[in-house]
Design a protein around this nucleic acid. Structure first.
Length: 420
DNA sequence: TCTGGGGTCCTAGGACCC
DNA sequence: TCTGGGGTCCTAGGACCC
């Protein structure tokens, strides 16, 4: 059996953890630049605040209903996620961290009779150690575990646990799950299936293989088999190295000057290069893009991206910035209101398998040491303490985050003080 | 003023190879 | 008169996830 453990309203729960006065009150967490809603507490959901809703459109409602809004604080969520995952790992050695707030636990052949107790213990332990409520779904396949988890959230709220341990329970859960709520069925497939009179997960599990293969490829076939109780999606115990690394943001304000785009771009390149070094890789291809805001119909629109192959695979921030700036020279055109830019690193290779260049003049060993020193200082002193001059210091383009909570768990000066 | 950011996998079709 | 068979690689586009 496989368990899927999922934190309830994760970002909202993280914020509330350090502001207990907000328990039972509606809260929302906003996307970068405070633009739209990306997480809601149950109370906020009940008020009808939808996922993805634009913040400025519901400002009035939030004021009237006493909804507290937070800018997203990924340092905080990342740190609390690590703690949740550590607690789960202590209970199950074969675990896959699936996302910031979810993990699959492979329970092997733990006797069915023990599953309930095990599930209860997981919930209680995470609540006690970290203070974040979780829901647990247990089933023979990953897709069914996801479904069981959804069932627990919807129908077993008080206990937050559901186990599909008999064929009857599986069928029942399949029948009460809309086809669009199945893991792997997005908007397009949901519409296609509805058109063909397939409305529930149960009906989907009965669709002939031939039709599935033709219309939903092998991905759909795996999914349907999983609904039938045949495991087709393996556990990934080690997170695989990323094949592409991307860093991009929309600006807090519209930007027209090349200098400012260059500042933002070098900042994103620094972030991407750091990710690259953390997973022990180098990149051979850097892609840079700039774009205007497609929602501003009054503006002239422009999007362009360019690939720049590197002579030798690299993870040096310095070198990547150099090529990134060359790329920007190729695609920047004055006269536009730019809204976003970014960098994508692809053709990623392990750093111990880099093909040397015949005419390479860079001392790569030295460069690696320099980067290691920089990363070390930044890790201790805080990110961005050592950076490159091109990144600028005014950073007018930076994100807005006007309702940012503190980094309670990752910054010493932000640790809560309790008076008693 | 105002619509997130970062990923994965699969398929089809074309170019090209022997 | 007649035009193989078996591959690889690349790109663009489409689907999905949190």
């Amino acid at each position: 059996m496989i368990a899927l453990v999922d934190c309830n309203n994760f970002y909202a729960s993280c914020e509330r953890l350090f502001q207990p006065s907000l328990r039972g009150k509606p809260i929302v967490v906003l996307s970068n630049n405070d633009r739209c809603v990306i997480a809601r507490s149950d109370e906020a959901k009940q008020l009808g605040i939808a996922m993805g809703e634009r913040a400025h459109l519901i400002e009035q409602t939030m004021k009237e209903k006493g909804v507290t809004a937070f800018s997203s604080n990924y340092n905080l969520y990342g740190s609390l996620s690590d703690r949740v995952m550590r607690t789960l790992a202590s209970q199950c050695p074969t675990m896959e961290v699936y996302s910031i707030d979810e993990a699959f636990l492979y329970l092997g052949d733990l006797p069915i009779s023990d599953l309930w107790q095990y599930g209860y213990r997981l919930r209680a332990l995470v609540l006690q150690n970290i203070g974040i409520p979780v829901s647990v779904g247990v089933a023979p396949t990953k897709t069914l575990a996801k479904l069981a988890n959804r069932y627990a959230k919807k129908f077993k709220k008080e206990i937050g646990l559901h186990i599909l341990d008999t064929p009857e329970k599986v069928d029942h859960a399949l029948k009460v799950t809309a086809v669009g709520d199945v893991w792997g069925i997005g908007r397009q497939y949901a519409a296609l299936l509805e058109k063909h009179d397939v409305h529930t997960a149960y009906e989907l599990s009965k669709v002939p293989d031939e039709w599935i293969r033709k219309n939903m490829s092998v991905v759909g076939q795996r999914l349907v088999n999983e609904l039938r109780g045949i495991p087709c999606i393996d556990m990934e115990l080690e997170p695989p190295a990323k094949k592409g690394i991307c860093s991009s943001r929309s600006f807090g304000v519209l930007v027209t000057s090349k200098v400012e785009i260059a500042e933002a771009l070098t900042t994103y390149i620094s972030t991407a290069a750091l990710k690259l070094r953390r997973q022990g890789s180098c990149t051979k291809l850097i892609n840079v893009f700039v774009q205007t805001n497609q929602f501003r119909t009054q503006d002239k629109q422009y999007y362009r991206s360019v690939n720049v192959p590197l002579p030798v695979a690299s993870s040096s921030t310095r070198e990547l910035i150099h090529y990134g700036m060359l790329a920007l020279d190729l695609i920047f055109k004055p006269g536009y209101n730019y809204h976003k830019c970014g960098v994508m690193l692809t053709e990623i290779v392990p750093d111990d398998q880099v093909q040397f260049g015949m005419f390479d003049e860079l001392n790569r060993e030295k460069e690696a040491k320099l980067m290691a020193a920089m990363d070390g200082i930044n890790q201790v002193m805080g990110r961005g303490k050592v950076r490159f001059a091109v990144q600028g210091h005014k950073q007018r383009w930076k994100l807005r985050a006007e309702m940012l909570s503190q980094c309670y768990t990752t910054r010493l000066s932000d640790v809560l003080v309790v008076q008693c």
